[in-house]
């Protein structure tokens, strides 16, 4: 759900009988949980959708470094600073695993980055919110990374081999992110009244955007059905969201802070928490580019890319010069 609302190009699902022999063989492999590898035959729409989904996921990891990077120089202690740097470095690594997975589908990384910078490719809506206090770093690790894990664990079983392998690597590292966030929240909640109020304020601001990360309700989406048939989406948006709420509410209880939702209540009959309505207009608005930080995030990415151009060029020129010299000497 670092990838939201991924367009599959599908108008309706097709049954096996309606498929040509190649597509049918492909779907039967997917149904039998055989992984699809980059050089295998695949429907063009599957390839395009995966490029969209994996690159959106990669862009989210990279843009996701910005809200947290904002606090590296302001972390309250050397220990917290070192931990935050390690976490942000992991996010860069996750972005790289994912770009590499997308590249196996025959698209260049420069093209993917150009699409992000041109506003053609999306990244998760969550990274368009500002990190106003240190408690936001706690809330991001606890809630945003918690929501990410919820989505990424099932994706380890997705049908495309390179994506599945990248997800396995990411999941191994992600648990540290969530725990370091919860640890920050715990420390604040055990601190002064002012510190606890900071933790509550961060929860108030991050709770609803975290629930929006899972994407629109299932009822609205033909793309979800297609992605499920291709097994590049394993659980539905609403299922993942409910699991996340069920797992997170008791953690907030432990911290002694409360979700900003007066309708949140345990429903013994369903065995789940009921929660209040989500403001979908806010999500669509942020996805369209009108969140609090969209313009700033994109501007920062483009500037980093442009200001790094001379380094990329110089490194390549140096490598070419040395290769030419070695060839001459031989």
């Amino acid at each position: 759900m670092y990838a939201q609302m991924v367009d599959t190009g599908a108008k309706k699902l097709r049954a096996l009988e309606d498929m040509g022999p190649e597509e049918r063989a492909f779907q039967e492999r997917v149904d039998a949980d055989v992984k699809i590898e980059p050089k295998d035959w695949m429907p063009e729409a599957y390839r395009k959708t995966l490029i969209r989904q994996i690159s959106q996921h990669a862009h989210s990891e990279i843009v996701g470094m910005l809200p947290e990077g904002n606090w590296i120089t302001r972390a309250p202690s050397l220990k917290r600073k070192a931990i935050l740097m390690a976490k942000v470095q992991d996010e860069a690594g996750h972005g790289l695993y994912l770009y590499a997975a997308a590249e196996t589908l025959g698209v260049s990384r420069d093209q993917l980055i150009a699409d992000l910078h041109a506003g053609k490719a999306k990244y998760s809506s969550i990274f368009n919110y500002p990190t106003l206090t240190w408690a936001d770093i706690g809330a991001i690790g606890w809630l945003v990374d918690g929501a990410a894990i919820m989505n990424q664990i099932p994706l380890c079983r997705c049908s495309f081999g390179p994506y599945s392998r990248a997800m396995i690597r990411v999941c191994k590292e992600e648990s540290f992110h969530q725990r370091q966030g919860f640890d920050i929240m715990m420390t604040l909640c055990r601190g002064s009244a002012e510190q606890k109020a900071m933790a509550q304020d961060a929860l108030n601001r991050w709770w609803w955007p975290s629930l929006m990360m899972f994407g629109p309700p299932d009822a609205d989406s033909v793309h979800s059905a297609q992605s499920a048939q291709w097994k590049i989406k394993i659980l539905s948006n609403d299922e993942l969201r409910q699991r996340f709420v069920d797992q997170t509410v008791p953690q907030a209880d432990y911290l002694g802070i409360t979700m900003p939702d007066p309708e949140l209540e345990w429903n013994a009959e369903r065995g789940h928490y009921d929660f209040g309505p989500i403001d979908w207009d806010e999500l669509y608005n942020v996805v369209k580019g009108n969140g609090p930080c969209n313009r700033d995030r994109l501007r920062t990415r483009v500037r980093a890319w442009e200001e790094g151009a001379w380094v990329r060029e110089a490194a390549l020129a140096y490598a070419e010069k040395r290769a030419a010299r070695a060839q001459k000497a031989a």
């Binding site: 690594g93 790289l96 590292e173 490194a315 390549l316 140096y318």
Partner: peptide, 23 residues
């Protein structure tokens, strides 16, 4: 374990250290 971009072999090894062996 995966792939990465680098201008030459030496940088490929250095990048691989950071991307694939952080733990």
């Amino acid at each position: 374990v995966g792939s990465l971009h680098a201008p030459d072999a030496e940088m490929a090894i250095k990048n691989a250290r950071d991307v694939y062996t952080r733990r």
